[in-house]
Amino acid sequence: MTSPAEALERRIDELRAAVRKAVTAGERDRARELRKELRRLEDAWDEALDELADQTERPVKPVPRQAGPLLPLREQVHQALTLLGAPAAPRLIIAVHEAFHVGEIIPARLTSLRRDEERSFRTAPHSRPYYLCPALTADLLAPARGLLAVSTWPMANRVIGPLSPRVDFLISAIRLAGHLDRIPDPSTDARRLLWRFAANIPGAAPSAAAMTPAAVADAAEAELDIHRDSDRSHREAAAKRAREQLDDIEQLFGSRLRGVASTGS
């Protein structure tokens, strides 16, 4: 059978070869044009395949591993952050969620979440019990790259000085360890998550198998003692500045222009 799908496929193969040729010859514009045509044909081909599949069975679209989330995304993130007790990067938030809950968080949705929260606050300030907001850098009071926090936390916990990333890492390790100790039968994912912390804290655990949450918490506490005071004073000072200099929105979502202008030449 020489179906239209097969003819399409042959054309797709030819185009692929042409794209490689153009790329190899350094003809970027031509490669771009060819790629565009290639995508068009691939879409057409997908449709043809779906039609073909329709006749035999329902097409199976990619599905998440688990059925839909039980909580809205922002509450899942809030849960994870509350557990960690300190600002965290999306990657860690996802790992925490997966270790203790069912369902999947798609990284791209976290990015849009942050924008949605700010928009919501601007439209109707303080109408929600909490907002998910970026942590702020201590010096410029601008959003810290890739760190999420909860609006109800004290300002000093939401600003990030030089020592804060490590301090927050240790705080999170202590809280995670505490959580693992409380819940019956923590999952393999949960233990593996704690091990990722423990492996990098001096004296926390000799090996993944021999790790105990209590020892991890003790070791983290010991290192935390070294950093706590200087981090605290740095953060308090920055928080004071933030409260004095920033408006309501900026206190949550950071100052962009002012920070930039103050370092400009």
């Binding site: 850098t137 410029l140 601008a142 959003p143 810290a144 790259r145 030089p162 020592l163 990333p165 490590r166 001096p202 290192e223 070294i226 950093h227 950071g254 100052s255 962009r256 920070g259 930039v260 370092t263 400009g264 030449s265």
Partner: peptide
């Protein structure tokens, strides 16, 4: 053990221009 301080120089308050990053 106390040497853990970190400074992110990949952007300056959301600005990623090369001049700005270099100055900082």
């Amino acid at each position: 053990l106390n040497e853990v301080g970190q400074t992110d120089l990949e952007e300056v308050g959301g600005n990623t221009s090369q001049e700005m990053r270099h100055i900082r």
